[in-house]
Amino acid sequence: MSRSYKGDVTPAECWSALDSDEPAFLVDVRTSAEWNFVGFPLAPAGRPQPLFAEWQTYPSMSIDGSFAPRVAEAIKASGGSETSPVFFLCRSGARSMASASALTDLGFANCFNVLDGFEGPPDEEGHRGQIAGWKAAGLPWRQK
């Protein structure tokens, strides 16, 4: 599978970009159920907070055809543009790659996938969030 987005970054690289002077955006593409029950990332203080946009709609998990235009509009409404860095985050990486490609196809030049997502792969006991990803990297997050 070829990718059309700019590249992959670690959660720490994403955090560093979000904390820089350049406007950068984090888009959490997981489902509302995941945000509510698993938790969600926070952005550095004084920076734009993450955008929450389901790539696939729970429970059918059908891809939201209006995803890219809605995210593009939200980024522009928050002061971003087609050249702003945009980082996509899901549970473990697959949905964020697809959504980064979708926004790239819409003309955004700097879309990135956050490697290992919010929770990363399961550990030897089947638990996520322990060995890789946003949570395991010790980056700020919250659970409702």
Score class of each variant (00 low, 15 high):
1 M>Q: 06
4 S>G: 12
7 G>F: 10
8 D>V: 14
9 V>Q: 10
10 T>M: 07
12 A>M: 06
14 C>A: 13
14 C>E: 08
14 C>V: 02
15 W>S: 05
16 S>K: 12
17 A>V: 07
17 A>S: 10
18 L>E: 02
21 D>K: 14
22 E>Y: 02
23 P>S: 13
23 P>Y: 04
24 A>I: 07
25 F>I: 11
26 L>N: 09
26 L>E: 08
27 V>Y: 00
28 D>W: 10
29 V>E: 01
29 V>L: 04
30 R>D: 10
31 T>Q: 04
32 S>M: 05
32 S>N: 10
34 E>V: 14
35 W>G: 11
36 N>C: 00
36 N>Y: 00
37 F>L: 14
37 F>E: 11
38 V>N: 06
39 G>W: 00
41 P>S: 14
42 L>V: 09
45 A>D: 08
48 P>L: 04
50 P>H: 11
50 P>K: 03
51 L>I: 08
51 L>G: 09
51 L>V: 01
51 L>W: 02
51 L>A: 05
53 A>Q: 11
54 E>N: 04
54 E>P: 12
55 W>I: 15
55 W>G: 12
55 W>H: 07
55 W>R: 01
55 W>Q: 01
56 Q>M: 12
59 P>A: 07
64 D>A: 06
64 D>T: 07
65 G>H: 11
65 G>C: 08
68 A>R: 00
68 A>F: 02
68 A>Y: 02
69 P>R: 02
69 P>F: 01
69 P>I: 02
72 A>I: 04
72 A>E: 02
74 A>F: 01
75 I>C: 11
75 I>F: 01
76 K>S: 05
79 G>L: 11
79 G>A: 13
80 G>H: 11
80 G>L: 14
81 S>K: 06
81 S>H: 05
83 T>Q: 13
84 S>Q: 09
84 S>E: 07
85 P>G: 10
85 P>H: 03
85 P>M: 12
85 P>F: 08
85 P>L: 12
86 V>A: 10
88 F>W: 05
88 F>R: 07
89 L>G: 04
90 C>F: 00
90 C>S: 09
91 R>L: 07
91 R>P: 13
93 G>C: 08
94 A>L: 07
95 R>C: 03
95 R>G: 01
96 S>K: 05
97 M>E: 15
97 M>C: 15
99 S>F: 02
99 S>I: 01
99 S>E: 03
102 A>C: 03
106 L>A: 15
108 F>W: 06
109 A>H: 10
110 N>K: 15
111 C>R: 00
112 F>S: 14
112 F>Q: 13
113 N>T: 08
114 V>M: 08
116 D>R: 09
116 D>L: 03
117 G>F: 03
117 G>V: 13
118 F>W: 09
118 F>H: 14
122 P>M: 13
122 P>Q: 07
123 D>Y: 00
124 E>Y: 02
124 E>G: 04
125 E>H: 13
125 E>Y: 05
127 H>R: 10
127 H>C: 15
128 R>D: 07
129 G>Y: 02
130 Q>W: 02
131 I>A: 01
132 A>G: 04
132 A>M: 04
134 W>S: 15
135 K>C: 13
136 A>N: 04
136 A>C: 08
136 A>E: 00
137 A>T: 09
137 A>V: 07
138 G>P: 03
139 L>V: 07
139 L>D: 08
140 P>W: 13
140 P>D: 06
140 P>R: 06
141 W>G: 11
141 W>C: 09
141 W>N: 11
142 R>C: 09
142 R>E: 06
143 Q>I: 05
144 K>C: 01
